[in-house]
Design a protein around this nucleic acid. Sequence first.
DNA 1: TTTTTTTTGTACCATATCGCATAAAATCCT
DNA 2: AGGATTTTATGCGATATGGTACAAAAAAAA
Lengths: 207, 207
Amino acid sequence: MVQKKDGDEAKRRGRPRAYDPEEALRRAMDAFWKSGYSGTSLDDLSAATGMNRPSLYAAFGDKRSLYLKALAYYWQVALGTMRADLAQDRPLADSLMRAYEGALSIYFSGDDRPRGCFVVGTAVTEAMEDAEIRESLMTGFLEFDADFEARFRMARDNRELREDADPATLATLATAVMHTIAIRARSGTPRADLAEFARKAVSAICG
Amino acid sequence: MVQKKDGDEAKRRGRPRAYDPEEALRRAMDAFWKSGYSGTSLDDLSAATGMNRPSLYAAFGDKRSLYLKALAYYWQVALGTMRADLAQDRPLADSLMRAYEGALSIYFSGDDRPRGCFVVGTAVTEAMEDAEIRESLMTGFLEFDADFEARFRMARDNRELREDADPATLATLATAVMHTIAIRARSGTPRADLAEFARKAVSAICG
DNA sequence: TTTTTTTTGTACCATATCGCATAAAATCCT
DNA sequence: AGGATTTTATGCGATATGGTACAAAAAAAA
């Protein structure tokens, strides 16, 4: 377990890759993010990643397979930032606002116009005809709910919330606020308006 | 203005149409609803409507034009049922639940699996690259907000809500609940679960 | 240096897709 | 009945699309 290191630096045998796999996956994700799954062609993906078709295929499999990898990568990033934001030791309302600010900076990232959430903006469309995507959405959303719920439960134990508050309901409400922000960001609502709404929503939910 | 009637029954001059325009539009909408804009081909639309390509083209213009007509039609139906549900003279919570039940029966309509909201499930994806769709979303969502807000304002005047409740914030929250229901319906959450969540959300919002 | 291994780049194939040209069909008007 | 008018039906054509074959290139191993 010592001499081999992890395959990352291990000298591979043939011609070296001209791309960084994670960077390429990010760029492919960006392409899908912009135009959706069906609206993104292999030419688009090739242009976005700088890889030619056979390299794309060798690295990630076919188009659908590449999309699924992008989706998994997005979940990882989105859930990761959300957990980091909620984990900080702050009052409940601050904690929630952090989570929404974190989401907003994802939804408004990229040099193009605001693109919202990758999942809401692209995967939901495909969920109707692709069972694997559908299941990914179910579990992803439930994880969001669960993280929010844990935070609300903690707040109730800390007397930041009334005894009779229901953490599960509040959590789903909190996810709902995230969903509407994702939808509206992609539809052109200015970031400041969404941040303002998030503040008021947090007050309403916590108060 | 008397003899001509509205062009509906007026004897047209050439070969009669073999289709009902509104029915055809509904079927085209169903096709888009299932696979999204980019994922639906003219062959799909032709099969769904029973019209051949040239007839489709003559009746609705090109693919994008047909999609825009379907989108407008959906807004009309969705806003219509929502207004009808909210207009009934009932206590606030009942009123809101009616609106959510109405939405659920749209999201779970069709003989296929649940398809959620046409707007959330298909138009949001295209909003990134199509300004006209983007604007349609903005105005549509704001109309939802406005209708909810009017209902909350009425409730506050009727003392069904506390004096210090903010109708605008509650309205956006109510739309947020609708959005999350739309997303989750398409992602496979059972209808009963969504109805249950709607009930709890309504309690939280009104209480 | 030669061989082996892996990746790249060009080109290609079969099919899908969008849109339209053109002729046949069905109705109204004279 | 015969011409005018509108819709339907078949099919074409240019391009886009997803996927792959094959040879050249670049590195390690022998």
